[in-house]
Design a protein around this nucleic acid. Structure first.
Lengths: 345, 345
DNA sequence: CTGAAAGCGCTTACAG
DNA sequence: CTGAAAGCGCTTACAG
């Protein structure tokens, strides 16, 4: 694909210019020359490389070394801000260790994942995958590369798992709402078959079951997005038994819930409380600002990459759980009606 | 970095299993065998490859071929939804041509760009770069690789440029507001030194200059983001001469403007009209929904990649301009006060 | 129709 | 301290 470009200098060209052998060039440029090459020659090599604008051919190095210092990062979609943060964190840590990152966005919406390895265009040393649906996992682990999973079922055949504390996050949401006096909840759930969302549903149900009189009056599934969130929340809000709190699996769904409430003439939080998950930029863009669980996306990517790097060094990083935080803002309040708050917070 | 993994099969292993030479394996697997290898042997090779789970070593192929079928995509930041869309479009087109994409996010916020080629971890055939600040360009074009620029000054040493019609976009904004009767404008400008934002400022000034009585009462610069947008808009709104319209360079800045207005007790659009640029998800998340210019991010990335692919085939794709659209929503209205609309639309 | 051989650019034992 | 040589896995003239 490369046209009539000026031919790129090779290590041979550098060697010639510096008056040394190719071996010496390699030693010096890889910084393995101390005690093996005289300082004067080392300097000559560096000068020659600089003058020529020499850059080692990565393909040749990878072929020779059998490893590429490249990791594949797999996320469902980058247009989702959370995954963009995960990616940023992973890239930051990888760069610090001089490891490159190749990104693969698993096209969740466009059917089953195509082969991420075919499109990589690079030899890979390891894989970091986030929040994948169950089937996608099989493809990844089948490749035999060190694999670190993010926001996923622990111990599902990965060298390590790094998760935000999803259970704690949902527990904080439920207890916050319960302590405000809410008893009728609806769950606006992400219509995605993955551990992280199953976990949210499980914990919400468990927390409500533990409080007398508290109930889930409905669960509505929607693909993650504002428009689908509107539809799901609208149905939840117009059900026979109207909930006083809408627990949403994601901030985008929560924004949809705002819009649904508005359409129905309901005020947030006076008539209905709404909570999200993620703490995306949109959470503070809307009015009132959204009460949500802050998931440390950047840190998740960073910790995941650290675990992968450790696995590549032969260590066994195991499972890491990252703390999460409930950010209380204006979208939650005491429920309307005669009910007084049950517990105080 | 690879530990004690099962050794990956090579083309030699496939050849052995199929009872043919390595050359035949290569021919068959690259689909260059017609008329050169008998159908029976071709099938035997494919079967052997399948059974072994053979996957060609990309590094070796790249080294041999001198090209990698890999393009570098450079964007300022992926946490910005617009660039995530650009990336998605570029990846989509590249995948269709069996070209891989390596992503480099130029750390705008963390000082001068580090060398994107060092971190690439792959031999690159070409570069697609979006909305880069002027200095960043120099690094990219210096590499001697085919380069396509997106949303950038045309003819700045790139093989091709693909731009959304920024001038038309800003013209639509200005005329929309002018026809509503606005005469006092403030520009909440992105504090980024790049063509796309200079162009917005230029066209806004020109449009206002063309209408008697219309004026820019202030320009406030802010890094792209909600919090900085709030500050900038607050200053614009509290200046001696208060504008009736806030023209924002970006939807995030516009969201900041909403919040600033609210803090000051001003209603959008009754007291002040606000416009954005991009049409991000947030534009319809806020209330009232934002009047903004829809920039075709996905299509921009796709068209850019098409141009790069053409350049790599030796063609000269030149400059492409993509149409944009003004999306009128609830954030713009007739200005307050005695003023009657000037022109009708 | 098929195979043996050379070589892409690098790195690393190995010999001096 | 330094260099000649082998080889990573692939593809493509070239010879048969």
């Amino acid at each position: 694909m490369r046209g009539a470009l000026p031919p790129r200098p090779t290590s041979r060209d550098v060697a010639e210019r510096a008056g040394v052998s190719q071996a010496t060039v390699s030693l010096v440029l890889r910084d393995r020359w101390h005690g093996r090459v005289s300082p004067a020659r080392a300097e000559a090599v560096r000068a020659a490389a600089r003058e020529l604008g020499y850059r080692p051919n990565v393909a040749a190095r990878t072929l020779r070394l059998g490893r590429s210092r490249t990791a594949l990062v797999v996320v469902p979609a980058l247009t989702n801000e959370f995954f963009a943060r995960v990616h940023a964190g992973a890239v930051r840590v990888a760069a610090g260790d001089d490891v490159g990152v190749v990104l693969y966005t698993s096209p969740l919406e466009t059917g089953p994942a195509r082969d991420p390895f075919a499109s990589a265009g690079a030899t890979l040393d390891g894989v970091l995958a986030s929040s994948m649906a169950a089937e996608a996992l099989a493809v990844l682990s089948g490749e035999g590369l060190p694999l670190v999973m993010l926001d996923s079922e622990p111990g599902a055949g990965a060298a390590a798992t790094v998760n935000p504390d999803i259970a704690a996050g949902m527990r904080l949401v439920a207890r916050h709402l319960l302590s405000l006096g809410h008893r009728r909840f609806a769950h606006v759930a992400a219509d995605v078959d993955s551990w992280t969302f199953r976990e949210r549903a499980r914990v919400l149900a468990a927390e409500l079951a533990a409080v007398r009189g508290a109930r889930l009056v409905g669960t509505r599934r929607a693909p993650i997005g504002v428009a689908d969130g509107v539809l799901a929340a609208e149905r939840a809000l117009t059900a026979a038994e109207r909930p006083t709190a809408l627990v949403c699996d994601d901030d985008m769904l929560a924004v949809g819930a705002y819009k649904a409430a508005r359409r129905l003439g309901l005020r947030v939080p006076d008539d209905v409380s709404v909570t999200g998950f993620d703490d995306l930029t949109v959470a503070t863009a809307v009015e009132p600002e959204l009460t949500t669980v802050r998931l440390p996306g950047e840190e998740l990517g960073a910790a995941g990459m650290r675990a992968l790097l450790a696995a590549l060094r032969g260590e066994s990083p195991g499972t890491t759980v990252l703390p999460v935080e409930l950010v209380r803002r204006g979208s939650t309040a005491v429920p309307p009606g005669p009910a007084a708050p049950g517990t105080r917070e």
